[in-house]
Amino acid sequence: MAEPAVQVEGLGKRFEVAERGAGLRAALRALVHRRVRVVEAVRELSFALAPGERVGLLGPNGAGKTTTLKILAGLLYPSRGQVRVAGFTPHLRKYEFLRSISLVMGHKRQLSWDLPAVDTFELNRVIYDIDASAYRRRLDDFVERLGLASIMFKPVRQLSLGERMKCELVAALLHEPSILFLDEPTLGMDVSMQLAIRAFVREYNEERGATIVLTSHYMQDVSALCPRILVINDGALRFDGTIEALTRTIRPLRRVSVRAESFPEDAALADWGRVIERAGDRLVLDVEPERVPEVVSRLVGLPDSRELLVREAPLEEVLRELFARPDDADEARP
């Protein structure tokens, strides 16, 4: 069996965070006496990722996703536990390890702000010791796929957010890393740019067999890219599996929507399922899986029935429900 691309056992990371109250008096007091609080950003995390997997790391703000990614990328030293990435201990930051990974962060850039992106690409060519012909071939390929030809020579500060992120991806992938960490890569982007980046990442994974670990607050990113998700909350793993498995565990009800000229009274609808929305000619119900055929046939029979849709509950709602449950609720445990 192939060695896991990522192996994490009992990982923990604690930070000391300086705190002070509001106002001038607290600020002055803090100059003399600083109050420090220990924060357990990651408590007890264990998982393994196979080479070539695409995995989404999900969790609310402050759950420990970015900290975990930074530990995997060798930026932070773990407080406890064992981490192996591509066969290396990340925090030792060996040359071969750094050559085999890349971390793209939606909120930070590696591109030189005042210069055209192509200058940073050239810097990376030298630093990663990329053969000139391979560099040219990969750059041409990425530029064509992402449609960057017209912006390659514009200073980075003049690029749009989406253009900049495309260039960040190119800078991160020129050395063809076998493991790619993506931290909110589509942050603040419009839908078409999100789609372009998702498609590019998927192609990179499929063509190069690279392992992808993605964090994103856009659930569409995760559901479109990641067959497997790891859900982290409060620094601990709450779920490890497919989105479907999570949805069926947390929210087994199917969401059925339809448009029709008129609907039965609420009391009658309550017998079919839970009414989520009833507005004008649109009705949305949550229905027990085994009752879906029956309810669908009734909905089809409504006057001018159209646009009938049956789907699982949206991932956002599933996660909200998961996070609302106590940590020791064991139905979502891997």
């Binding site: 930074k70 990328a73 060798g74 930026l75 930051r93 040359y95 071969e96 750094l98 050559r99 990974i101 890349s102 971390l103 962060m105 930070k108 850039r109 590696q110 990376n124 630093i127 990663y128």
Partner: peptide, 13 residues
């Protein structure tokens, strides 16, 4: 201060 040292530390140099 800004945390962009991340990208310096990530380079194999």
């Amino acid at each position: 201060r800004r945390g962009t040292l991340d990208h310096v530390l990530l380079r194999p140099a």
